[in-house]
Amino acid sequence: MLHDTPNITYVEFISLLVAGLCFVLAFTFQVAEMRRTPQASDAASCPGFSNASTAWVAGGAVLSAAILIWRGWRFGLWSLPLSDYFDAGLLLAILLTGLWMWFCWTRQLKALAIFLLPLTGVLILVGGILGVVGYRNFNTANPWIALHIGSILIGTVCFAAGCVSGLGYLLADRQLRKKKENWPLPSLTRLEAFNRHAILLGFPLLTIAAITGIFEALKNPQTAGPDWYWSAKVILTVVAWAVYAPLLHVKLTPSFRGARAAWLSILGFALLLAVYALAGFG
């Protein structure tokens, strides 16, 4: 299955696997450190941030950036390449590392950072595998497709933030209901507010991505294929859009808050990942 394609070399693929492994190792070290020092008085002093885990995150991000720069140089470009899923996975890893750093910097959201690591590892590996197995040239010279891909990438980061804050919310809710204090997490209201803001940013991007995608499909029906509008990819995108929509209107749909909102933001992100996978293999 693994072989050099015209666009992805074997060395690049192995390097991507190593980068993904870095994030997985960072996650492992962070969990181990948290288990070693499970107690902390508040979310700001969240344990688990050892030098080892930080070093692995930095290693993963630097390696991802190096592969992208190398590919840009190889293709004779002087900008970051964004030609296929392989590059998209690497770029997402760098963007999510930025989000990880921001979580750490804000301190109050530091406890959420750990959730990002396995997510980053999975995204980079899926991107790499899709790039090799189901290679698809994004043709970003087309401005509509460039907008489509750009919206998806930045939107994915926003929804990833929504997903991890949703996970954090459910964990904090569970701890409160179980009457345990195992892990210091931000307050429920802070997690909920962050979740809403993340989706508020991601939703317009998802909408733009959907509109530009539809526009391109209508313009090039031969590429999109017959009955493209009934494809699983399109249906799942619409479902994901519908899942996120009520989260933006708390006043109109007050019951979609708290744990329900958290579940929906996780479900929405899972649907988006499914859409990416379908788009890659389809």
Binding site: L176, S187, T189
Partner: peptide, 8 residues
């Protein structure tokens, strides 16, 4: 402290 775990 529990109140603060719910409300920021």
């Amino acid at each position: 402290a529990l109140v603060q775990r719910v409300f920021d």
